[in-house]
Design a protein around this nucleic acid. Structure first.
Lengths: 208, 208
DNA sequence: CCCGTAACATACAGTCTGTATGTAAAAGTA
DNA sequence: TACTTTTACATACAGACTGTATGTTACGGG
């Protein structure tokens, strides 16, 4: 057993300060935007010096990337939790959609993940992150729905990218104060529209 | 008649330097991203000093906003030119879509309008610009299509926003090297899916 | 116990942004 | 036309921030 303050292993120290930095940075990046947040402010909030930051991260971007990565993972977890394999393809898609929109209501998340992320890290890097976390759920859901509902055969890569973009925009609009129900309905309509046959349990199906 | 170099009205001078600044800034912002472009570089390219910049624009953001505004207007012009009122609703939508994707192939435009724009000016400001220029065409096209094709009744505001987001993402993907035909097909499928009845001319003719 | 290295803290150099100040030309006025 | 005010800049300055270089202390292995 070791003193709580006097005797910490190097690995523990690294882990702790990295976590402190990421936590402080996350808080500020969600409150203020990347450009408006300076490294002096971050390290002050984390209780360390800039030396520690630049020891653990190559630069400010790298710290931001770590925060984004963690946040994207958190969103993906919430989506997966909401859409267990017990649901049907279509039900899973809807549940996942709602979970995504709900997860993106955490204050500042939309700006960090959808605005600052692409600007700071580039869209290519953000795509890479998204594909590793969030988009995977959506693409798999779409593939499943395509197979189950015999969804119109289309380039899956393009389709998931476009739908993901629509989801992102919906999250942004909702945070900006737009009526969430409108965007939810529009999103579902977009996805439903991809199924060639009229669907069983959608609102009073429009007479075809 | 006045000397060509010695005798310029104040209004002419203002107009000329403003244009020089915007032109130089546009070139650099499309080449390098907003953050990587410094005001010293801009004024050097424009042949003036930073004093002139800060005399005509409140700050770097304001200059960027002027460039974005001009660029968005240029895109809108190309869309309007490609979709004259002589076309049917659906034809106009397709022509407008292709025109948009073509216009966004100008190097650096996607990053400036779709990445840096929202990050620097905020999504609210970008929405305002879009609504004044680009989105107007899309929304009107959708409204027309909804009326003509009896498109499913849905919140137009939300629908146009989501479709616009999909268009933006398609433009980004295409510039990143993705197959444009895939994204074009996916976009048309998304829009066609909103029409309750199967459409007459299902086989889309290749645009170019 | 000693030495190398990791984990920092401190100090520094360079660059950028925005502002304040100064100047010459235009524009209004008498 | 003479005088004054305002405009269109150029120059100089202050503050902040980023990244690096250097120094110090504690850990870890032999």
């Amino acid at each position: 057993m070791q003193q709580e303050s006097g005797r910490r292993s190097n690995r523990d120290r690294t882990e702790a300060t990295r976590a402190d930095l990421i936590r402080a940075a996350r808080k500020l990046f969600t409150e203020k935007s990347y450009a408006e947040t300076g490294t002096p402010e971050i390290v002050a909030a984390a209780g360390v010096t800039r030396g520690a930051l630049y020891h653990h991260f190559a630069d400010k971007q790298a710290l931001f990337a770590a925060v984004v990565e963690q946040e994207a993972a958190a969103v993906a977890v919430e989506i997966d939790r909401a859409s267990p394999p017990s649901l049907s393809a279509r039900e899973a898609l809807i549940a996942g959609s709602d979970a995504y929109l709900a997860a993106m209501r955490v204050p500042g998340r939309t700006r960090m993940l959808l605005i600052d992320g692409p600007a700071v890290l580039g869209r290519a890097a953000m795509d890479e992150i998204d594909n590793r976390h969030g988009n995977r759920s959506l693409r798999e859901g779409l593939v499943a729905a395509m197979r189950a509902q015999s969804m119109i055969k289309l380039p899956i890569e393009a389709l998931t990218a476009l739908l993901a973009a629509a989801f992102d925009r919906a999250a942004l609009a909702i945070e900006a104060g737009a009526p969430g129900e409108d965007y939810r309905a529009a999103l579902l309509a977009l996805m439903d529209g991809l199924s060639p046959a009229p669907l069983p349990s959608r609102r009073p199906a429009p007479s075809r």
